[in-house]
């Protein structure tokens, strides 16, 4: 378990490193988590890392037992006025509290340990409606919103299938299949547009991918 947490923190640090060079336009790119932007997803990660188990129960009751609404509330709460502010918040939750050696924070199924499958690019079927493509490309539990460049404007469906990371335009991004805040798993991995099914290594992330 300690090993898992070391891995989680390493992956969080790697994610922050990947994000710090993004420009404002890149922060507003759509992610593969429904229509969340990269910025929205990072805010979601901050929210999941900060929410305690009791905090989750309270938040769910406040959201009238709607996981999507709860997630949307969390994004709104943690999305800073600028991407840098949100990234700073992610940095604050990225490592274990310093004063307690065993004070490791919650588990996250970070996806950076995923391995790149060199079997070639995956084609996006442009004949399918975008909504259907998003559905297929979004792992379970991801909130889908109609936000676009701004904040999420409405909640939508939870997606049914997932398990494999798909190709994005400029980013490959996996939002975890969770709707609970304690798990904080996602990664944004920059790749060229022409690549890449990425598959998760189940031995690294048992039960997650």
């Amino acid at each position: 378990m300690e090993d898992l947490w070391r891995m989680v923190h390493a992956e969080r640090a790697a994610l922050i490193n990947d994000l710090k060079d993004l420009d404002d336009e890149q922060w507003e790119q759509p992610s593969l988590c429904g229509e969340w932007t990269v910025h929205d997803v990072v805010a979601h990660l901050v929210d999941t890392a900060r929410t305690t188990r009791i905090g989750f129960v309270v938040g769910l009751a406040r959201a009238r037992f709607d996981f999507d609404r709860q997630n949307a509330n969390g994004v709104l709460r943690e999305r800073g006025d600028s991407p840098q502010e949100t990234l700073e918040r992610l940095g604050q939750v990225a490592s274990p509290p310093g004063s307690h050696a065993s004070g490791l924070r919650r588990c996250e199924g970070a996806c950076r340990p995923c391995s790149v499958d060199g079997s070639g690019p995956r084609r996006v079927d442009r004949r399918r409606p975008r909504s259907a493509r998003l559905r297929a490309f979004t792992p379970p539990g991801c909130l889908r919103t109609a936000g676009g460049a701004g904040r999420p404007r409405r909640t939508g469906r939870r997606c049914a299938d997932g398990g494999e990371l798909m190709r994005g335009n400029r980013f490959l991004l996996r939002c975890s299949g969770h709707s609970t805040p304690a798990v904080d798993p996602a990664a944004i991995i920059r790749r060229p547009a022409t690549v890449t099914p990425i598959t998760c290594n189940p031995q690294l992330l048992p039960g997650r991918c």
Binding site: F56, L60, C107, H178, T180, A182
Partner: peptide, 10 residues
């Protein structure tokens, strides 16, 4: 449980 499909206990 209160915690949705992936509870934060792991």
């Amino acid at each position: 449980g209160w915690w949705g499909p992936e509870p934060p206990y792991h």
